Structures are given as structure tokens and as C-alpha cells.
Simulated scan of single mutants.
Amino acid sequence: MSKRSMHEDDPLEDFIRRDIIFDGAAKRVYVAGSGPAVIVMTEMPGISPQVARFSRWVRDAGFTVYMPSLFGRDGAVPTVEEGRAVLQRACVSAEFRAFAANASSPVTVWLRALARLAHQECGGPGVGAIGMCFTGNFALTMMLDPAMLAPVLAQPSLPFNDPGGIEMAPDELAAVRRRLDQEDLTVLAYRFDGDRICTAQRFAAYSRALGERFVARVLPDSAASRELSPFFEKVVGCPHSVVTAHLIDEAGQPTIAARDEILAFFAQRLAPRTHGQA
């Protein structure tokens, strides 16, 4: 993959644009690649050049990427004003549960339908997904659908008003735990040590709920990039986005190691099953 500037809007010209409708709700989905399906859910405030870069890495690793537009301006470098406006709209949107409610965001129903469609279109044993920041927990909720096999939680940040909360109904969380145990599956999760949005308390809550099925990775703050867009510098204000905004794209960097671990996780979980495998 050729290098692109992370400081200019990304035209996303190498993705196919599809408008997909489930239960009357239409969303733009950017699709690229071939192989088993992986759903990449953007962080706040939208599909930035860094989010698109991560999707291209997934595509180039041998997967079909489905990148739904959930909020913000697609491909844009986030500014402070625009980013804050997108965040404010999302926090009051009926599609999301930004604050503690012991319930999953309603948009996850649409995303589970997307996972089923992606599995039908791409085949293989199942689908992978990564959620980031605002969407960080969505990949776990999507485990309620049998098509989902490889969930990755990158700095899951909701609910905002409960640092130790999990954005999921207790009965759904229990159902996911049963499935993880029954099918011998795991959940990968990432955060920076000094992240004030995705806190240590939240990872502790996941560990209590999911036990050894929750595989946590905590990166040192020194591993985070300091070359940031205005939104991440002024609004986020702490090491946060492990494989996107705060990733350092250099060999040997901990954030690159995290990216490679995620790609290997998808490859292992979504590899075609040979005769005799469960």
C-alpha cells in the first residue's frame, strides 16, 4: 500500500460505495478487497485518513473490508469545531447510548445485520469486526450474532459518564460470555495506559465479566504518536487511538505490533476450515 498523507482529506477512491438498507435504515458502506469479511467501525468523529489507512491494511492482509459511515464527514481530517459538533450530535442520537443505560446502542442491530450480509457475500467460517472509541464495544455486542467470530475492541469509550461501565445489557453480556466459553473464542482489546477516556476501570469491568476470554493489551503512553490532527490534540487530549490517530507508522513500534496482532487474530479466526475441524 502506497503511503498517503494523514493531514489531507482522503477521497476513499479505492473503496466501492454501497448504500445498504436494513429495516428501513440506510447507511453508506465502503467496501474493498477479497476474502473473509471484516467490519471496521470508525472512531469519533468519523472515517478519518487514519481509519481508512487501517482499513486498507486489513484489505491488503487478505480480507474484504466493510467500513460503514456512522457519523461525521467521510475521509475528512477532523477539525476541532467539526469534531465537537459530530460528537455532540452522536451523544443525543437515538442510534447510540453514549451514557450509562445498561443497554447496547440501537445501531448495533443494524451492524449485526451487516455482519450477516457480509458473511453471506464473502463466505468463510464467519466475520471479524473492530470497534474504536465511540464504537469500541460494538464488536462485542455483535457477538450475539453467530456470524461474528473475531471481535476486537480498540479503546472502548462508552458510557462516557461511567468510567467502569460496559455499554451492554447484563443479559446480553452474559449471553456473549456463554458463547465465548462454548465456542472457545476470545476478545482482543487495546488501550493506552494513560487514556482518560477508556480507563483501567473499564478494562477491569470487562475482565470481571468475561474472565480469561477478555485478552487485554495496555500500551505505554510513550508509544503514542504526537503528530495529531487538531481534534485529537485539543479535544481528546491524551493517548487514545491505538491503531489510528496515535499509531506510529514505523517498524518496531508498539502500535504497529498491535496492528499486526489484530491482523493475525483475524487471519486465525477467519481462516477456511479444513475437513475435520470444528
Score class of each variant (00 low, 15 high):
Met44Tyr: 00
Pro49Ser: 03
Ala205Thr: 10
Arg213Trp: 10
Pro78Val: 01
Val152Gly: 01
Ala94Gln: 12
Ala169Ser: 12
Gly211Ile: 11
Ser69Tyr: 00
Ala85Met: 13
Asn137Arg: 02
Ala271Lys: 14
Ser222Gln: 10
Thr108Pro: 05
Asp181Cys: 12
Glu82Ser: 13
Arg84Thr: 13
Arg269Ser: 11
Ser105Gln: 09
Leu228Phe: 07
Phe214Leu: 15
Ser157Asn: 02
His119Val: 01
Pro239Val: 04
Ala76Tyr: 04
Ala209Ile: 05
Leu173Asn: 08
Val242Gln: 06
Pro156Ala: 06
Leu149Lys: 07
Ala115Asp: 09
Tyr190Thr: 06
Arg53Val: 00
Glu250Ser: 06
Leu70Lys: 00
Ser69His: 05
Pro78Asp: 03
Leu12Tyr: 05
Ala115Val: 08
Ala169Ile: 02
Gln268Phe: 09
Ala264Arg: 15
Leu173Cys: 13
Phe138Val: 03
Ile39Gln: 14
Ala129Lys: 00
Val40Gln: 06
Leu180Gln: 11
Leu185Thr: 10
Asp19Phe: 12
Arg116Cys: 10
Val38Trp: 13
Cys91Glu: 14
Phe214Glu: 12
Gly211Pro: 12
Gln253Tyr: 04
Val86Trp: 03
His240Ser: 07
Arg59Tyr: 06
Gln50Trp: 05
Arg4Ile: 11
Tyr206Trp: 15
Arg59Met: 09
Pro159Gln: 08
Thr135Lys: 03
Ala169Arg: 09
Ala257Val: 11
Ala223Gly: 09
Ser229Met: 09
Arg259Asn: 09
Val51Ser: 10
Trp110Ser: 14
Pro146Lys: 00
Ala52Met: 02
Asp181Leu: 14
Thr79Tyr: 02
Ala258Ser: 15
Val187His: 06
Thr199Gln: 11
Ser69Lys: 04
Ser104Pro: 07
